Amino acid sequence: MTDAQVQDFQKRVRGISRQHRRFTNGYVELVERDGLLVPRQRRMRRGFPIKGLVLTLIGFMVFKGFMLSQVGALNYTDRLDRLAQGTLIEQAGAWVMQADPVTQAIAGQLAGLL
């Protein structure tokens, strides 16, 4: 074989190896119009999980509303005031758990259900 043929062969082998490495993350088989199955690389999502963050925040707001509806508004604010007198972490917890309008609306809805 000539040197050009060897280089062409090595180039094709590198391309096939690169394609195999990409397919290790998964692939989807697409059917072409002529019935040929063609593997395509599965898109990998590499970003901030916005959906997970939103679901976590909604769950936290429902938890706060549930706590407010079960304990009562006066008792809830009394507990938050006592929590605000504690350490720095307890003060941060009191600030996060304060009853905002969304929490009060959720508590009103939950009080009607329970």
Rank of each mutant, 00 (worst) to 15 (best):
T2C: 14
A4N: 03
V6Y: 12
Q7N: 08
F9C: 11
Q10H: 11
R14V: 04
G15S: 07
I16T: 11
R21K: 10
F23P: 01
T24K: 15
G26Y: 12
E29H: 11
V31W: 10
V31A: 02
E32P: 02
D34S: 04
G35L: 00
G35H: 02
L36E: 12
L37I: 08
V38T: 12
V38F: 10
Q41L: 11
R42F: 10
R43H: 13
M44V: 15
R45V: 07
R46Q: 15
P49V: 06
I50E: 04
I58Y: 04
I58L: 07
G59Y: 00
V62C: 01
K64R: 08
F66R: 12
L68V: 09
Q70H: 13
G72F: 01
L74Y: 10
R79I: 15
D81M: 04
G86N: 02
G86E: 00
T87L: 03
T87D: 08
T87G: 11
A92G: 07
G93M: 07
A94G: 00
V96Q: 03
Q98N: 13
A99G: 05
P101V: 12
T103S: 00
T103L: 00
Q104C: 06
Q104A: 08
I106T: 05
L110A: 04
G112T: 13
L113P: 05
L114S: 13
